[in-house]
Design a protein around this nucleic acid. Structure first.
Lengths: 137, 137
DNA sequence: TTGAATGCAAAAAATTTGCATATTG
DNA sequence: CAATATGCAAATTTTTTGCATTCAA
């Protein structure tokens, strides 16, 4: 259960209360931009964290592999728990909703990329924009 | 040839020298963030444009369908000519190179998304991150 | 002529940095 | 105890806004 600490220490980092809180916030939010994390943090009853700490936490967590990010938003990256990283994000351009489909759906695509060009795709990191079913005319 | 003007006017917009220059800059650059456009513009011999103009030009061009954007960068969007929009971008995490593969490669993937969830994917907008062949160990 | 677009300057957002202090291992 | 993180304030960087002026149609 203390895999968190392990993971961080393996990268010469330390487990701090703030990093745990950021992690939990991501758990609650699913995926969130740095701003959304900053705003969403106090929901756990704790005090707000300064932006610099949140930015640094996210970077540290990502570096140690506990967190990943995608680009749901057109600007800021959206972070999520690495453990939630088993699906692909579909972002609807019309209603803004973000849905998810199993990673497996992209398997053949990733394979054809590898065959065609030797590129090893991280399909997890990929956000697919378009129109969701309910927004399709 | 004056399809540019047409396109813009169809959206109640006008064809200006600045918009043409931004368009040409994108032609030269392939794909570029707003900052890169700002920096790259004077290469045509003309004067620099203020950031506000560049941002507004990009938005207008995008709205009229002449330009699209993807997320090659982890922050700012990268704009490109809509006419160059016939391929998928592969971004190498290691060396930063951006390569392109034919849209067709994503056809089956898009179809399976549509079947599975009714989501109409704009594969064009999609940037795939990972490791290119020369950076794969 | 007239509404749309530009240029400039200033404001607002978003992200990063420096450094003294607090904390983890 | 030593090294890493935090908190805070300030500096950057990026993007947006207001408005008088210019320009396309």
């Amino acid at each position: 259960m203390d895999e968190l600490g392990e993971r961080l220490r393996a990268h010469g980092m330390r487990l701090t209360a703030q990093r745990e809180r950021v992690l939990r916030a991501l758990g609650r939010l699913g995926h969130a931009t740095p701003e959304q994390v900053i705003d969403g943090l106090p929901a756990d009853g704790g005090p707000a964290l300064p932006p610099s700490t949140v930015y640094r936490c996210l970077e540290a967590l990502q570096e140690s592999g506990l967190v990943t990010h995608t680009h749901l938003d057109h600007r800021a990256p959206s972070y999520q728990l690495a453990t939630h990283d088993d699906h692909i994000h579909l972002v609807c351009r019309a209603c803004g909703s973000v849905s998810q489909v199993p990673l497996a759906l992209a398997g053949p695509f990733a394979r054809s990329l590898a065959e065609a060009t030797g590129f090893a795709a991280d399909v997890t990191h990929m956000a697919v924009h378009g129109r969701c079913a309910s927004c399709t005319p």
